[in-house]
Design a protein around this nucleic acid. Sequence first.
DNA 1: CTGTTAGCGCATTCAT
DNA 2: ATGAATGCGCTAACAG
Lengths: 363, 363
Amino acid sequence: MTVTLADVAARARVSPATVSRVLNGNYPVAATTRDRVLRAVDDLDYVLNGPASSLAAATSDLVGILVNDIADPFFGIMAGAAQSEIGVPGDGSARAGGEKLAVVCNTGGSPERELTYLTLLQRQRAAAVVLTGGALEDPRHQAAMAAKLGRLADAGTRIVFCGRPPLPENDAVTAALTFDNRGGGRRLTEHLISLGHRRIGYVAGPQERTTTRHRLEGHRAAMRAAGLLDGDGSADGTPAEDRLTVYGPYDRRSGYEATLELLRREPGVTAVVGANDSVALGASAAVREQGLRIPEDVSVAGFDDLPFSVDTVPALTTVRLPLHEAGARAGRLAMGTENPPPGGIATIAAELMVRGSTAPPRG
Amino acid sequence: MTVTLADVAARARVSPATVSRVLNGNYPVAATTRDRVLRAVDDLDYVLNGPASSLAAATSDLVGILVNDIADPFFGIMAGAAQSEIGVPGDGSARAGGEKLAVVCNTGGSPERELTYLTLLQRQRAAAVVLTGGALEDPRHQAAMAAKLGRLADAGTRIVFCGRPPLPENDAVTAALTFDNRGGGRRLTEHLISLGHRRIGYVAGPQERTTTRHRLEGHRAAMRAAGLLDGDGSADGTPAEDRLTVYGPYDRRSGYEATLELLRREPGVTAVVGANDSVALGASAAVREQGLRIPEDVSVAGFDDLPFSVDTVPALTTVRLPLHEAGARAGRLAMGTENPPPGGIATIAAELMVRGSTAPPRG
DNA sequence: CTGTTAGCGCATTCAT
DNA sequence: ATGAATGCGCTAACAG
């Protein structure tokens, strides 16, 4: 029924071994023989049997890219960049070996699904795995991840982090590209403070994520350095930093609801920082719904600088992360076409983008 | 080195076949035996060898989801929904068989990459393939696709279209879910016409895509029905429909540039329709940059109703496509857990969402 | 319900 | 530079 390598060999009047060699291209074969084999491949519409090949060679051409939310361009941009470095030369044929199949897997932010995908990729004997986005800080999950990644690494799978902090004991990880979320968060808030803002609300991401914590730490470092957190407790003793922070998912709805909550708690807020651009978008909607203008009454800022952020009205002040470059680099590291940074860890800078959504407060 | 099924069998004091049976679960095994085997699996941290399994069974648990642009939520939403129907029960273990590995592949809109990915999936003996988004109308590519899909289908791969028009001879395709792009486009423009607009610019997608053509056909059908295209040639004889249409990629930049071009060509335009929401976003930016207000001076509308569209200012009038539902359904069809619609083809309705970005023209 | 046997299709020794 | 032989780890008959 389905044509095998032996069929190709018969038609080309060579041995199966020779066909295998021309397909894999990693062994000398006479030019005339190769032509004959390739013609036979075309004639028969032969397609390599991946499972058989992987079984015999004990490696596969699968590369997995794990993302938290495939519907979020933050991940889509990184995954797309990684995928184009890894996969598919693009000649449309791919009958021979050598091409990697870069695939993205959507964990939905669920730790169980993250582990399950890793197991599935381990089962496929994946050549490499790229993990994007922040990690969960739950110690149990971290331990499980470390163990799983260790086993993957033992089996020869290359492991690359992209926008994810390195593990404490990361001997399993080939390379970790981590974003300067803390520095970006700090500079963003410093910008607001320099404009004159004193009461700044913060809509954070999910509490247990590294990205959330790092961005928030940057924000608070700036606040504290300006003396805006100390001795600012309200009557009931709640620290200012708690009253001015609301946690939630990284989506616009969370930004909307959290901002309404913030404005209720602290009507004197003159600026709202969203943990990412989507959150900031929701925050903007909430601010406007309260009859407040941006930036005249309330400044709004985000994080990531996704493509839509420059088109909001007013354009969103945010922190730019070079998502495309980071993803591409992660892809090359996964392919082994780029050397890991010294120590296996590289920090990627975040750049403040000042736009129209932030301005000095009134009065 | 790596633990195999035979190791598990030895430890559980059963035959390899029995281990295989409990792992695959599709054969009666005594409860006590199963427990013993599962314990051995856990003790040994055994993970099934996917390639070996696929080779022996002549099927794999891979399911491919092809998208045109992974950074575009339009595709991300569908792919995510499909993936959650297909993959990963979510218990975190996945040591046994049965779980499918749903993976998304980014073609970047390139026909060659589309074919290459299909070949790669064919090589892996994928269980199913979901193709999302519009198709290219180039006859050569269509023929190549039909041939490739035919071979995949012959090999037992289920093929599902999601938001993609059925092929002329689609006996290879298990099911095709297609969006009512034409109807949606027509109703959107009818809405503008009913508001009193007469000169309506249209920023279309790439010229050779089915989605582009269908949406534009809907728009023009509405225009023609209202007598807004006939006898409206300019002095140089260019038909009105050509002067009022600009093609480009499905992104905000194209919307921005095309709209500047439209406003230059036809200063009397009172409404601009974008081929999708991202284009409409760019169009809005261009309109504003010309000192025009939305919707007082120019109405703007989009297509898809992506999550951000409700948050633009003013909120974007658009056509809602049930992307999540469609993706989930495609996932179930790929899994075989839902029966194909009669004739293999289902048309998915598009709903007009009237919001603040459209209003009657001035005067 | 469980064990035995025989490949699945290919990569890779080892020869030549 | 090419051919012959072996085994990768597992599933699927077939017995029992």
